[in-house]
């Protein structure tokens, strides 16, 4: 059980690290498109890692409720499909309405 807790903690730490990196990238990057680079990837993997770690925790601690992990699996699946699609849609809307991408050497927006 101790080993399971260590593995779950590692998953949670990785997920929180990527979520924090996504937030810092949202603050630091110079324009809208590069900010979406930070958030669209880091949030997907960060949320997925956290939910997967909790799924392992559930399998070893609450094994008499075997149907609940299916919801978590569906949640991971949905995040990995919906999040890139939402990123792509918002980016397409911005590109069609004429938001200029930032080039190297310009002032940050």
């Amino acid at each position: 059980m101790f080993l399971v807790n260590v593995i779950v903690t590692l998953f949670l730490a990785g997920g929180v690290f990527f979520l924090l990196v996504g937030s810092i990238g949202l603050l630091r990057f110079p324009d809208f498109y590069t900010r979406l680079h930070a958030t669209g990837k880091c949030d997907t993997l960060g949320g997925g890692l956290i939910i997967f770690g909790l799924l392992i925790y559930h399998l070893f601690h609450y094994f008499h409720y075997p149907l609940v992990p299916v919801r978590l699996l569906f949640l991971i699946f949905f995040i990995f499909i919906a999040n890139p699609t939402a990123t792509h849609t918002v980016m397409k809307a911005a590109y069609r309405t004429g938001v200029k991408p930032w080039k190297l050497g310009e002032k940050r927006q």
């Binding site: 997920g15 979520l19 996504g22 937030s23 949202l26 809208f32 900010r35 979406l36 958030t39 949030d43 997907t44 960060g46 949320g47 956290i50 939910i51 909790l54 925790y57 559930h58 978590l72 949640l75 995040i79 999040n83 939402a86 990123t87 918002v90 809307a93 911005a94 938001v99 927006q109």
Partner: peptide, 27 residues
């Protein structure tokens, strides 16, 4: 954030983080 697109990106990000937060609070 300047402009409406930065705000929407931030709101979308907050939504994704809230999902992870809800699952953790459930446990």
């Amino acid at each position: 954030g300047p402009g409406v697109f930065n705000r929407v990106a931030a709101v979308n990000v907050i939504g994704t983080k809230t999902i992870a937060l809800l699952v953790i609070l459930g446990y």
